[in-house]
Write a protein that binds this DNA or RNA. Sequence first.
DNA 1: GACAGTTTCAAACAGTTGTTATAAATATTA
DNA 2: TAATATTTATAACAACTGTTTGAAACTGTC
Lengths: 218, 218
Amino acid sequence: MKAIRPAWDEGTKKRLIDAAGKVFARHGFRAATIREICKCANAAVSAVNYHFGDKKGLYLAVFEYCNRRAIEKYPHDLGLDSEATAEERLRVFIRSFLLRGLGDGFPAWHEKLIAQEVADPSGIFGKVAETAIRPMDEYLEKVIREFLRKENSAQEPDVCLVELCRMNVIGQCIFQIHIRQLMPLAATKILEPAQITAIADLIFQFSVGGIRAIAAGR
Amino acid sequence: MKAIRPAWDEGTKKRLIDAAGKVFARHGFRAATIREICKCANAAVSAVNYHFGDKKGLYLAVFEYCNRRAIEKYPHDLGLDSEATAEERLRVFIRSFLLRGLGDGFPAWHEKLIAQEVADPSGIFGKVAETAIRPMDEYLEKVIREFLRKENSAQEPDVCLVELCRMNVIGQCIFQIHIRQLMPLAATKILEPAQITAIADLIFQFSVGGIRAIAAGR
DNA sequence: GACAGTTTCAAACAGTTGTTATAAATATTA
DNA sequence: TAATATTTATAACAACTGTTTGAAACTGTC
């Protein structure tokens, strides 16, 4: 029996990562099946175990790949001048977050995979939190602390308030991403970068108002 | 012939609903297994099919039960005076949302189940959206529209801005619920109503500042 | 007691899951 | 070319999935 290898073959390993990203993002670790992934990747079921050991190995590989590429493509500061104000850094942070979550292809998986981990943790969340979430949190924390300090006449802001503001900003971004990935119509239509920037700027406006209100304390 | 049907709150049926709520909330529809639910409810596996037809029937029953009880216990206005200002209604809406999501027992499942549906839709989302999400959305929409109208000297606010504000408020609430359900320490410790109110009021403060900033348009 | 309706339980069903053993196909090197 | 290592394909494995079966155990009424 002559096996037919597709001409567009650019390596089973790469195709598996791509397919697994799609399927894991859609169903989460538990509900995703190796067979669906392999069918999606035009590969045999045994390919997963050969290249990645087991299902969890593939999952980790996908996470590492997405995380690395997403931050590489859309870093938190989007190459902003390091002398930029806290306000400007916040605006850009929100834009980068939305670009990662609403863009086409693998960057969108990144946020969706994290969402799946939040919904039904698979046990690797600790590792993910360290490499993907922690650095982002610390970056945003610094930005917001600086912002609040300026608003509050250089007085060191309350830790709880900083955390609350950080959560609120992230919450808004994540909700936007989820709601737009969920809507059946939006699923087919990818948002243009300009549209994403527009949404990001509105969230920025809202957040600045919110942070100022928290800083004012009433 | 009068069939002797046990009260809804008694017997295996009730225990199954309780157990299924817990397991579905933790793992989602696909990844949850009937056997885990039945073990949790001290029931035989066939009990599910006897009482609810199939897995999906149980899932729907859980959703209906949670939804009804959660809104019953914490309605959107928490019994507020119907003459209350939009600002006060918003404050109370946020508090009721957090109480539903962070309280003990079944109210907490409610939001978690919706989150699971968002993460990996099981096909019944249309039904859920109609009965659980749509009414909440419309209530909040009215509140925010009224708020914006007052801020903007009775001028009818832009539809997109109303929607954005609504999403941002919901996003903040949902994120708070998720993050607190995720943290391993918080899982054991249930928040006191007073603590929940405190968090809700901070989100309210933040949101009011945000909405005002959006209304001001800069 | 006997009887009929309702509910439980253990066992088994067919289908799917992750994983693996083995052989075939391909790539690499001498 | 031949020999070797790497990669892919097939089929099977045991464990688990939702569901069904049929017999037992209840329930209340006569």
